[in-house]
Design a protein around this nucleic acid. Structure first.
Lengths: 332, 332
DNA sequence: TTGAAAGCGCTAACAC
DNA sequence: GTGTTAGCGCTTTCAA
């Protein structure tokens, strides 16, 4: 900046004024400074600028998502971005790949005034690092999952209720042997979905059969294996609730291969891309990831605006989209 | 930090040493400082710390994509991230929404935050001004599209060749009336695809019929409208090359609705999510977005490592995935 | 093993 | 309309 000032024949302060589009600068001076900036390839140092400012704000927030090629994360991003952009705030996104080490590194990288706030899909069980963020008075909103013992706002989908609704929908269509495919129940969302499934069975007087519950479905390959196991049971289910998008995909794949698409009732979770073009079109409980992102961003900005009410939990409902696969009757 | 120093009865420098886990600190002193840090809830100000440090490198790069919920962008992100993470470098992504103004703002925001380099899907036609936004010493690699008048590495898909291959594939299966659905040809990629389509027709002695070329397909709705127009032609095509993922989706939708899925041959571009589960499964020219991202990141790191050879263009080939829809014969 | 002084690049407050 | 001085919170010499 000093170099720019020298070249333009002004003081550093005047350069600062031009850079920040302040008024009270002579047009000729402004032009000279601009020229010097361009000539020298000068770029403002945001860290230093922020350090010097009284009200230290970067007008940017960080978003930590699990993975960029997860449609849920993408929708979340979209929701957050909409709200932030509306307020002239940038969103910097990075993915944790569900790895606590990466998550920590990202948080450190963004930390301490680099961004004004965080929206985090928590990966680590133990969220000690939050302490340092809170210590620095940087607000955090968690999304999708609830980290243990943390005093911060949390916005999640209504997983248990969604699973209950999905399962009840299948029961309403006459099914009594209903398979479940979900992730490892060490994941909060997966455990909640399992509970919702069990709730619905119990509420309808159905017994739970452990053989019908596939709990380790984390990849499409897992999903295909799980689907195969379910179909090969001595008494296979007549309907399956696939409580992850990846699970529905693997399941549909296997059903197609076996020519069972028109026979096995299926409800998926998360509205994956071409669900409506499948045959039959896939009935899903659609999580409103955009709404989750929107709400999370709104909470974050409320905190940034000084809201110091106690942290709260916000639950965004999912909605059942009936398309065909979930309304298939019990065969025969 | 000064408070901590006072409380621990040491100087600021010693606090700094403890915070940064430097050696050469008496264990007793270290413990006293630690205690003071805890008592006061002190948190290091990363911005100030970084400002003071001599060698300022953020070990992070910025990635500007068109939109987060575009699968191509997501794959690109994935490719970039893989290479970057491998080198312990963080990737911050943001989406331009194809808006040059947003693009400019993002670039400035990232540049002032000391990202070490940029990977950009250019939105603006003319990218000369970008140089000044970024600053002289920060390398840039462009992806997917070639900005005008810029001396920087560019990594793109082989759009013209892909379109040629896709169209030739349909011709090889006997089709002579082949529809084209692509974006506005003001977009470089769309124009290249149109050219490839024309190339293939010409190479096989087929005449181009403007009525068969739908050039403004930017949304799913556009795609449905375009598909409808093609089907309603007096002499409709027997095959269609949908040169955008969104175009294939709209097209498949319309074909399904009209019961023409098994009749109309279709080749898509971009391997969208559930393409292989459609009926018939969708034949596509799969752009290797991950490879584009990987290559772009490798080029960027090469530049960061001091490679100062002249900027070059890198073209990543796409590959034809035959799944069924593209191999349907001419009816009767 | 520890501390003092200087300064990173910028903006605030106030002068002129 | 523009410049001066001070200082943001930290790390770097370099000295003790």
């Amino acid at each position: 900046m000093r170099e720019v000032a020298t070249r333009a024949g002004v003081s550093a302060k005047t350069v600062s004024r031009v850079i920040n589009n302040e008024t009270n600068v002579n047009e000729a001076t402004r032009a000279r400074v601009r020229a010097a900036v361009t000539d020298l390839g000068y770029v403002l140092d945001a860290a230093a600028a922020n350090l010097a400012r009284v009200r230290r704000t970067s007008r940017s927030i960080a978003l930590l998502i699990s993975s960029v090629d997860n449609p849920f994360s993408a929708q979340l991003f979209r929701g957050v971005e909409t709200v932030a952009t509306h307020r002239g705030v940038m969103v910097f996104a990075a993915s944790t790949e569900e790895d606590p080490a990466i998550e920590d590194r990202l948080i450190s990288a963004f930390a301490s005034r680099f961004v004004d706030g965080f929206i985090i899909t928590p990966t680590a069980q133990d969220h000690r690092h939050i302490a340092s963020l809170i210590g620095a008075r940087v607000p955090v909103v968690y999304v999708d999952r609830t980290p243990a013992g943390i005093g911060a706002d949390v916005v999640t989908s209504n997983n248990r209720e969604s699973a209950r609704t999905a399962t009840a929908h299948l029961i309403r269509h006459g099914h009594t042997r209903i398979g479940l495919m979900t992730d490892h129940t060490s994941l909060e969302t997966a455990e909640e979905r399992r509970q919702g499934y069990v709730d619905a069975l119990a509420a309808n007087g159905l017994v739970q059969d452990p053989a019908l519950m596939e709990l380790g479905v984390a990849t499409r390959t897992d999903a295909e294996a799980a689907a195969t196991r379910l179909l090969d049971l001595p008494a296979p289910p007549t309907a399956i609730f696939a409580a992850r998008n990846i699970a529905s995909i693997g399941l549909v794949q296997v059903l197609r291969a076996r020519g069972l698409s028109q026979t096995m009732a299926v409800v998926g979770l998360d509205d994956v891309g071409l669900s409506d073009l499948l045959d039959p079109p896939l009935t899903v409980m659609a999580q409103d990831a955009v709404a989750i992102g929107t709400l999370a961003a709104e909470r974050l900005f409320a905190r940034l605006d000084g809201d110091d009410t106690p942290p709260d939990r916000y639950v965004v409902p999912a909605s059942l989209i009936e398309r065909g696969s979930g309304e298939l009757p019990v065969p025969r």
